[in-house]
């Protein structure tokens, strides 16, 4: 294995959204703790997956890391530089190194803009003034993602979902980023198209040494595509691990339940399901202690009051759960 070089380090990032209330609707009465203190690192050239249920804060995390949303607290280091402190101007320059691909290829493209313009636009924003240079880059990147020259003249609605996602990827790619945050890039696509887009992303990663943060709720896609994975629950990372360790031997009860809920791969496969009871609690009023405790099949007394922290449980494997804290481990 080649030496792993850290590209991104996220330290205790929080994003709270204020809920307004009071007589005039101008008082903050509560906060939605969409992201509530997450930390992880991503190495150069790897794909880091983020999984978890709807509303657990995956998209907010992705957007906060690249400062599309300003973090409430915490630090993000990109190539060793603290980007949370960067002034707007410097941040704008850095944006070309960190790009995002959105889930909905229909909503994220300007419907009145020709595909050529859509792909070219980021270059203009990043101050590439030479038009011939821009033209060359648009053609190059269109070719890389499989959009023909004729198609560049068309409008987004003339494309299928998979093709639109290619446009979104081309747009992200044209500034030659080092990191791409892909927020559910294939969730809106059919199976046969999904594999086209995933294969394309893999090719581009090899060719340009790209690093991905891949956000998804589809556990089989994540397993296929990612090297390391973080499992989120209610704004927190509850387990982070190399892919195989997580799928072969998940530690956190939530990760276990999530993996066991995967539909069968074959009708005759026997499956032990861990059925979770109850609904996902609200991030504006998270449960005390371990936020998973009201749904946890292994809940103990400590879980109701004491918040667990992420602790190593093997090589490259960390989990935040009282089942694995030191005292517990001793008494088992």
């Amino acid at each position: 294995m080649h030496k792993q070089e850290e590209l991104l380090r996220v330290e205790n990032i929080k994003k709270y959204f204020p809920i307004k209330g009071g007589v005039f609707g101008n008082k903050t009465v509560q906060y939605v703790k969409a992201v509530d203190g997450i930390s992880f690192t991503v190495n150069q050239g790897e794909t880091f997956g983020i999984v978890g249920e709807s509303g657990c804060g995956k998209s907010t995390a992705g957007r906060t890391i690249m400062r599309m949303l300003e973090p409430t607290e915490g630090t993000v280091y990109f190539q060793g530089q603290d980007i949370t402190k960067l002034a707007n101007d410097d941040m704008r320059k850095l944006r070309k190194d960190i790009q995002i691909v959105f889930q909905d290829p229909f909503a994220s493209l300007n419907p009145r803009m020709r595909v050529y313009k859509i792909i070219e636009e980021p270059l203009i924003n990043f101050g590439v003034t030479d038009q011939a240079e821009r033209h060359r880059r648009v053609l190059e990147v269109a070719d890389q993602v499989g959009i023909s020259q004729a198609q560049l003249k068309r409008l987004p609605h003339e494309f299928s979902g998979g093709q639109r996602q290619r446009i979104g990827i081309a747009r992200a790619l044209i500034s030659k980023p080092k990191l791409i945050i892909a927020d559910e890039p294939v969730s809106a696509l059919d199976v046969s198209i999904q594999s086209q887009v995933l294969n394309l992303m893999k090719d581009l990663q090899k060719e340009f040494g790209l690093t991905y943060i891949f956000i998804s709720h589809d556990l089989s896609v994540v397993k296929h595509f990612c090297d390391r994975i973080g499992v989120m629950y209610l704004g927190k990372m509850v387990e982070i691990s190399a892919k195989d360790d997580l799928y072969d031997d998940p530690k956190h009860p939530y990760a276990k339940a999530l993996l066991s809920a995967l539909p069968k791969a074959h009708p005759l496969q026997e499956k032990e399901r861990i059925m979770l009871t109850g609904d996902v609690p609200s991030p504006s009023n998270p449960p005390s202690g371990c936020t998973f405790h009201p749904r946890c099949p292994s809940c103990m007394d400590a879980c109701k009051t004491v918040e667990p922290i992420l602790q190593p449980i093997g090589q490259n494997h960390i989990v935040s759960c009282h089942l694995y804290t030191a005292e517990e481990a001793k008494s088992r």
């Binding site: 199976v191 046969s192 198209i193 999904q194 594999s195 086209q196 995933l198 294969n199 893999k202 556990l219 089989s220 896609v221 397993k223 296929h224 595509f225 799928y247 995967l262 791969a265």
Partner: peptide, 16 residues
């Protein structure tokens, strides 16, 4: 085209 949870492949097959 489905990713197989039990098998690791570098590329998925796809329908063009």
């Amino acid at each position: 085209s489905l990713p197989d949870i039990n098998e690791q492949k570098e590329y998925l097959s796809s329908i063009p």
